[in-house]
Design a protein around this nucleic acid. Structure first.
Ligand SMILES: [Mn+2]
Ligand SMILES: [Mn+2]
Ligand SMILES: [Zn+2]
Ligand SMILES: [Zn+2]
Lengths: 135, 135
DNA sequence: ACCAGGATCTGGACTTAGTCTAATCGTGAC
DNA sequence: GTCACGATTAGACTAAGTCCAGATCCTGGT
């Protein structure tokens, strides 16, 4: 079922996020496209028709979404963070030429041979980035 | 054998890098410690005793080292790049609390179940980051 | 309808990693 | 010595992200 502002309002509530107009629009930008977007891109999308949301609110909101585990961040480009509407563990193809990111489902991926963790350490997650290019 | 300014001079030459005083000091900072360092940290190390190398030269030099494949960059912290004196393929533990990076030898690591690449794409590398924390 | 208080939003100043530029420096060839 | 050319430099600049203090928007109580 497609994302609408209405069902996203519910999603926000379920994540303990007060669904304001701006937050709904930012969520809609990310979830309706299902793409990995930078804060800058989201700011542009949300203000496309008429200016509606400030830069400060975009950053505040994305950080709130992160904290509430509604979205993930993907650190792959040294110059900007990408926000990922899929918060569950998964991996990525990264096109080093175009900067595009594509998801890799975590189901079916296995990593063998990882050394034991230093004592008293615990794994928080494993991120795999497959860097690809046209060739 | 430990790294000295003399043998690093040879390493630079073998990588087609004209071994200037500044470049040797920057290489020494990275290789003698064998740690993953940010440009800022390297700038501080190199100018510890007396100011000797400018910020511009540190960045120019690190980018030259990258281009010549003398070092690698590790993208894991959204606010800065880490430079890695080990340019061969390997993976990393990342302590999300302290920011520390530790190497994982690529030998012995296998990743199963990766989907086929989109047509006409070729893999440039696979980076695995194991995020850990005290727990 | 009115008000109070808290949450949210905002423009703009600020911070900081990294780049760029135009001037200067160093060194080897002649 | 001087010329050329690569390397270095200070400092201006860019751009992602944060911070702040004032404005604005609820919401619940009266
Ligand atoms: Mn609107
Ligand atoms: Mn010195
Ligand atoms: Zn993703
Ligand atoms: Zn490493």
């Amino acid at each position: 079922m497609p994302y609408t502002r209405d069902n996203l309002t519910e999603v926000l509530r379920r994540h303990d996020i007060n669904p304001t107009h701006q937050r709904i629009e930012i969520a809609y930008a990310l979830f309706s496209r299902g793409e990995h977007l930078s804060a800058d891109q989201i700011l542009a999308i949300v203000n496309d028709r008429h200016s509606e949301t400030s830069k400060a609110t975009v950053y505040n909101t994305l950080n709130l979404f992160l904290e509430k585990k509604l979205v993930r961040e993907v650190i792959v480009d040294p110059s900007k963070v990408f926000y990922d509407p899929n918060p569950s563990p998964h991996h990525h193809f990264y096109n080093v030429d175009t900067g595009e990111l594509a998801d890799i489902d975590a189901a079916g991926i296995e990593v063998h041979g990882l050394p034991a963790l230093p004592d008293g350490m615990v794994t928080e997650g494993v991120d795999i980035i497959v860097r690809v290019r046209a060739g």
